[in-house]
């Protein structure tokens, strides 16, 4: 990797989901994830319905039905941390595994809990992927501002997004410089001791900090020259249209329906 230009997760397209107001998408996305957390363990039908809703949303976004599914696998490794839920002592033992000196007994309750955690996590990641794939990041930030996030915070996030690529490139340049000076023969240990390596990395971090600090100063001067007043302005009206309200109402109904399925069936 020589450049950090692959960061943006937005997929430009013209679809009903892309046109939807960012506020609606943020609220529905967070509502979907909250709904997942509220569902009881083992509500398989409700989880299936939630995934169905997600697939339909995928299709409506013009990204292909399996788009978020394909992207969701990067979140799986962490899910394995929940594996100890399998051995909840409360339930009925299913089987017994011997693992060296230890005997492990997965229980039926534990299995249900583990699968539920996995499903919740996996559905939520997909919702977040869909949100960022259909909403340009600056719109997302404005939506957060309209949703009463402190202005300082949204401004900091906007700056972060803008300079993320620049500073990541800077970090990559530093790493490349380190690599260029770290020649090694194949099969022979090279480089200094561990403390030496840590110190080198610390110097990289310090160097990166100073370059960032000086860049922030230049950025501020340049922005002052262009009339900066302490917050970012936009020409977009960000007004909710009738279609946005309709989508919000529909999504709320679907989310309630999923909860109903989860708790009643």
């Amino acid at each position: 990797m020589t450049h950090a230009n692959l960061f943006d997760r937005y997929h430009a397209a013209d679809s009903p989901l892309h046109r939807l107001d960012a506020r609606v998408k943020v609220v529905v996305g967070v509502g979907f994830i909250l709904g997942n957390a509220l569902l009881p363990d083992g509500a398989w039908r409700a989880f299936a319905c939630a995934w169905g809703a997600l697939l339909i949303a995928n299709a409506r976004a013009g990204l292909g039905v399996w788009f978020t599914l394909r992207r969701s696998f990067l979140a799986l490794p962490f899910a394995l941390a929940a594996v100890s839920a399998l051995f909840l002592p409360a339930g009925r033992p299913l089987t017994e595994w011997t693992l060296g000196p230890w005997r492990l007994t997965p229980t039926d309750l534990g299995l249900v809990r583990f699968l539920s955690i996995l499903l919740r996590s996996w559905l939520s990641v997909q919702a977040a992927i869909l949100l960022t794939a259909t909403t340009p990041f600056p719109d997302l930030i404005h939506a957060l501002e309209h949703l009463r996030l402190p202005r300082v915070l949204t401004a900091v996030i906007a700056f972060l997004y803008r300079y993320l690529f620049v500073l990541t490139d800077e970090a990559l340049r530093l790493l490349r410089a380190r690599q260029a000076r770290s020649a090694s023969l194949p099969g022979r240990r090279s480089g200094g001791t561990l403390p030496w390596r840590v110190r080198t990395t610390g110097h990289l971090a310090g160097q990166l900090f100073l370059r960032s600090y000086e860049r922030a100063d230049r950025v501020y001067q340049a922005m002052l020259a262009r009339g900066y007043r302490g917050y970012l302005r936009t020409l977009r009206p960000h007004r909710l249209r009738a279609a946005d309200w309709r989508a919000l109402a529909l999504a709320a109904l679907v989310l309630l329906w999923i909860q109903w399925i989860g708790w009643v069936y």
Binding site: V152, A155, V156, I157, A158, F159, L160, R162, Y163, L164, V166, L167, T168, E170, A171, L172, L174, L175, G191, R197, V198, T200, T201, L204, A205, L208, F209, S212, Y213, R215, A216, D217, V219, Y220, M223, Y228, R229, G230, Y231
Partner: peptide
């Protein structure tokens, strides 16, 4: 207001610094 660009660029710094690793 001066602090806002500084904090923003510093946030980007933290982000980029997380790429720095050592074997």
């Amino acid at each position: 207001e001066r602090q806002i660009p500084l904090m923003g660029v510093m946030a980007a710094f933290i982000f980029a610094a997380q790429m720095l690793n050592f074997p």
